[in-house]
Design a protein around this nucleic acid. Structure first.
Lengths: 141, 141
DNA sequence: CTCAGTGCAAATATTTTGCACTATG
DNA sequence: CATAGTGCAAAATATTTGCACTGAG
């Protein structure tokens, strides 16, 4: 369907711009992540890459998270899950059955934000909207 | 300011209606939680109540969570935090500095939800909106 | 009395860290 | 070739569970 906006090499250069080295383990991890449409846990990645040290996976995930390449999202029970983010600012739909992650931007939301910021005391520094869904594939079954 | 909508005895009867017993440890925990305006972790509660077993605190928090007395909310980094919920369906503001938790209902949001559900493929089964703020008290300092 | 609930400690996750080693730039 | 990055195992955290005991109804 749509080509991922963020490619392996793109991601590597994001890291390089931040002064990080393009090492083999990082390449391997990024290669695996790229194109994963489902949310994933650091644990899963670690299991799928026995050749890469567990700690390195966790360190790299955190790195990518800070670089904005990955998004952290929480399942309904709070379990952490990550997904590649292709668009700058967006929100997620997470299938509670299969873990598939969707992204969407809704200007509606940004407008709402502006309206809410007047109702909410204090200064909004961030927000998180997550929608838990049964995805179409799961519904079809 | 406002009296908490949910009192100790109210909470206890919510549990009793669900077939749970009104035991001493539960009373102690609820008494502590009641009126806490800041979000809290199970850990914190456990430390503040050395007389109550650690596992009991975790079990009770989970119980109250399922009963809808507590809300689970996530800090920006995903760390779990709980807060007493006074209104049925609502969203949270969480001060990233002091951890104070605010609640609000915005019919705006419910309307938005309805609009979004048409744009989002699949069946929405839940959502979570969290606003991270610097609260007025923290801004004042 | 009976069994849900408890405390304790051990078990199980989950993530981080220390450290000697490796390899990128 | 300096030092960021790595792997490993141990440590630190966080939560759950097994089990014998206690107390609410």
């Amino acid at each position: 369907m749509t080509t991922p906006l963020t490619t392996r090499t793109e991601i590597m250069s994001i890291l390089e711009n931040r002064g990080y080295r393009a090492t083999a383990p990082r390449r391997v991890i990024i290669e695996l992540l790229e194109g994963k449409k489902e949310g994933f846990t650091a644990e899963e990645i670690s299991n799928e890459l026995p050749g890469v040290g567990r700690a390195t996976v966790f360190r790299t995930v955190k790195l990518l998270l800070n670089a904005g390449v990955l998004c952290r999202l929480n399942m309904m029970d709070g379990a952490p899950r990550y997904s590649i983010s292709s668009v700058e600012h967006h929100h997620h739909t997470i299938c509670v059955k299969c873990g598939n992650v969707g992204e969407f931007r809704a200007t509606n939301i940004e407008n709402l934000m502006r309206a809410l910021s007047e109702q909410i005391p204090g200064e909004i520094v961030g927000h998180r909207f997550e929608f838990y869904v049964n995805c179409e594939t799961c519904l079809a079954n």
